[in-house]
Design a protein around this nucleic acid. Sequence first.
DNA 1: CTGAAAGCGCTAACAT
DNA 2: ATGTTAGCGCTTTCAG
Lengths: 340, 340
Amino acid sequence: MSERGMTRPTMREVAAVAGVSLKTVSRVVNDEAGVRPETAAAVRDAIARLGFQRNDLARGLRGGGRTGSIGLVIKDVANPFYSQIARGVEDVARAGGRLVISGSSDEDPERERLLVGSLCERRVDGLLIVPSGAGHAHLATELALGTAVVFLDRPGGLDVDTVLIDDAGGARDAVAHLARHGHRRIACLIDLPEIYTARERCRGYLEALAARGLAADSALVRTGLHDVPGAERAVTGLLALADPPTAVFAGNNLLAAGALRAIRSAGAPVALVGFDDFELADLLSTPMTVVAHEPAEMGRRGAELLQKRIAGDQGPPERVLLPTRLVVRGSGELPAPTGR
Amino acid sequence: MSERGMTRPTMREVAAVAGVSLKTVSRVVNDEAGVRPETAAAVRDAIARLGFQRNDLARGLRGGGRTGSIGLVIKDVANPFYSQIARGVEDVARAGGRLVISGSSDEDPERERLLVGSLCERRVDGLLIVPSGAGHAHLATELALGTAVVFLDRPGGLDVDTVLIDDAGGARDAVAHLARHGHRRIACLIDLPEIYTARERCRGYLEALAARGLAADSALVRTGLHDVPGAERAVTGLLALADPPTAVFAGNNLLAAGALRAIRSAGAPVALVGFDDFELADLLSTPMTVVAHEPAEMGRRGAELLQKRIAGDQGPPERVLLPTRLVVRGSGELPAPTGR
DNA sequence: CTGAAAGCGCTAACAT
DNA sequence: ATGTTAGCGCTTTCAG
C-alpha cells in the first residue's frame, strides 16, 4: 500500500503499469466501448493495484465543463424545514449522478451572494436557491453565463423555474378553521416582512378574516418575529392585552414553538394553528392544529426542474405550487373562544 | 450583458481587455503583491466588465490540489441530530474558506462507500464521516493518499481524529435517574446493534442497572429498532407484558418519539427518558426527561480537527468525548413506579 | 513590477 | 482496437 502523503496515481501511471496508452485507460475508466476484454482487465488490475481514482477536477475542466455537482442555498440547514428540503434535493441529485454542495444564508442577502459566488467559482452545474432579500442581479449574471437556477420556497425576482408552497391558501385554511370554531379574535405571528412567505401567510390570514366578515385588529398582528423567544414574548404580550386573542395563527415552525411556550406559561386555553408540520405535534399538552406540507417534495421538484434545465431543456419557466393541508390534532379539544 | 449560454470569460480574455498579461490578472485575482495600483484597477475594471469569475476547478488542478471543499457523510440530513452536526461543520468550514459537500448514507455501508468515492474523485480536502458498518478499508486507502479523515459520532476502525458523545455515561445517568425515582422494571429501546452508539447506550443501561443491584431482564431490552413506528410497536408490546416496565429508556430521538406514542396510546403512566434533546420536549402531554448534548458542537469540533490536519498537523490522533447532561422536564410529574 | 513558458490530469479530435 | 496530439483555465517557475 502507498505511503502517507504520496502523490495520487494518474492515468498516465496506470497506463504505464498496464502497458497501454493513456487514452485506453480513459476508455476503461469511463466505460467507453472499444477495448478488448483482456486489455480492459489489465487496466482494471493496474487501477486496483495503484488505487487510482479519476480526478473529477481535471475531467470537469476538459469535458464540457460539467462538474457533477449542484449548489443549494437555504436559510439554515439546522432548521428541520430546510433540512428536509435538502434531503429531497439530495435524493434527486444522486439519481442524476450529482453531489450537493449546500450552504446556509441565515436570511442574509450578503451571505447568499457570497455563497452563490463560491458555488459558481466551483462551477456547479446548477443552483437551487431559497432567495433572501430582494436584489438578485448577481444571479442574472450567472444565468446569462449559463448556470441553471431554480428558486425554492420564494420567488427570486428572476423569471426562472420556481417551486412554492401555497402559503396564502394554507394560512386561509388555518384561520377559517379557527373562525369556524367560533374564534373572532385571532392573533397572527409573522416572520420578517422581507420574506415572501411571511407576507403571503399574512395575506391569507387577512383574507380569511375578511371572508368571514371579521374585523382585522392590527394589535393582534405581530410581524418581524424570527425566533422562538421572540414569538414567545409576542404571544405573552398578546395574552396580557385587555381584550386578548382566543386563538393564534403562527406563521412557521419556530413561531409556533414560541407561541406554544407562551400559551403554556399563561395557562390560558388558547387555540393554536401553526404553519409547518412537526413530529409529535399531536402529543403536546396544548393540542395544536398544523398547516402541513412536504418540504422534501419541494426539494425533489426543484432538483428535477434543475436537472432538466442542465440537460438542456429550453421550455418556459415553470411555476410549481405545492399544496398544504390542515391537520387537526385533537380537534375535539380545540379550546373554544372565551370572554365577551 | 452577455448572452445565454455564452462561454465564460477566462483570465486570458480579461488580460486581453485590460491590456496586460495573463499572470498579472492572476496576481490581481489572488491579491498577490507586486502590481501597480493603476494596473490593478484596470484589471479589476476588465473583470467587472466581463463578469469574470475565477475557475476553481482549474485552480485546484494546478495549485497543490486544494479544492476548498470538505466532504461530510452523515446518516440522514433530514434527521435533526445530523442536520445540526452539518450546521456546525458548515460554520467552521466557512471560517476556513471551505464549502461542504454532504451526503446521506442511510446507514448503508455501500452507499457510504459510494459517497466517499465520489467525494474523493472530487478531491475534497478532507472527509468528515459518521461511519456505518464496520469495514473501512477503502478509507485506509484514502488516508494513505493524503485525504484527511475525521470520524464523527462513532469510531470508524481507523486510528484518526474522532469526536464522540459520552453515550454510555448519558445512558447511565438516564437509567440511574429512573432508578432513583423507584423504578425497577426499566425497558431499553436500542437501534441496530451494528451501530456503536446503540451498543454503548445499551452498555450504559446495563451498567446502571448493575450499579443499583437491579436485575437486567432481557425481555425489557428491545434492539434492532430504527424508526418511530418500530419503537412504537415495541413499547406497545412491552406494555402488554404480564409484568410490564414502569419506565422506558429510549436510545435516540426517533425511538423516543415512538415510545411516546405508545405510552400515550396505552394511557399508562410510564416514565420516559430519551437520548437526544429536542425542541418542545418539555411541552409534551407525557412529560419526559432527556439526555441532552450538542450535535452542532460535535460538527464544529470535528471540522476544526479536520482543518488542522489539512493544514498539515501531524500530531497523534485526537479523541474528543463530548459530555451529555440529563435534562429533567417536569420532574415533579415523573410517573412513579406502579404495580407490585 | 511584469511577462513567457510549462504543465496540473484529463478528454476530444483525430490518427493509425 | 488502440495511440497521438492538443488544450481546458489556471498557477508555478523563471526571466526580464
